[in-house]
Amino acid sequence: MLAKRIIPCLDVTHGRVVKGVSFVELRDAGDPVEIAKRYDDQGADELTFLDITASSDDRGIIFKIIEQVASQVFIPLTVGGGVREVGDVRNLLNAGADKVSINTSAVVNPQLVADAAARYGSQCIVVAIDAKQVAAGRWEVFTHGGRKATGLDVVEWATRMQQLGAGEILLTSMDQDGQKKGFDLALTRTVTDALEIPVIASGGVGNLQHLADGVTQGGADAVLAASIFHFGEYTVQQAKEYMAAQGIEVRL
């Protein structure tokens, strides 16, 4: 049976993995290649790298990191951050990424998703959506790290991205992100039920029960978390054993 995936997320800037609450108070979590190898040893199903470097001067660093990780870690690697054109997708794939995550640029230019999927296949195009609740049962798409409202309804937007060729949706609740109170389960459930493609739940994991809830209540195909793994609170293996004990199919 297909396993639910556990995906550690590494926010990378200036060649280091960092983690903060809503992009403030960034805390250093270590070397990305070392951390990637540690998660691989622990049984991570995939790894996601988000390049949160503000300056384009430092863009080259992420390519070197991905090249190093890809030569030592043989699980799927997703890379996002600053992807603006098809050439950026190509460069990341050539560096060793298996999937490329597109966020703000998909809103600015939806055709980018269609062009990238047509050229490289839907299997490598992840559309990342940052969602904020605006009313009961309604969420709006935000960009620029959650600072800019777009007026787009999350379910409509996710459906459109699926039509344009996205292979997967990385769904982050900006309300929950960094709060350690669990995923926005209603958001996750609403989006996953509306789509045919897999949904990765993200934002808000503070303990292992939150991961399990994302699958059992949220209906997510995969769950993504950062800080609970980075600072040694839990290993990926512990997360999987915890989920398996609740009857969730995982790769042990």
């Binding site: 049976m1 396993a3 195909d221």
Partner: peptide
């Protein structure tokens, strides 16, 4: 085919993506 479900009634997504036996 579309409309695939597992034995718990959860929708199975296409593409089939992830780790399977």
């Amino acid at each position: 085919p579309g409309n695939l479900h597992d034995d718990k009634g959860n929708k199975l997504k296409v593409p089939h993506m992830g780790w399977n036996n």
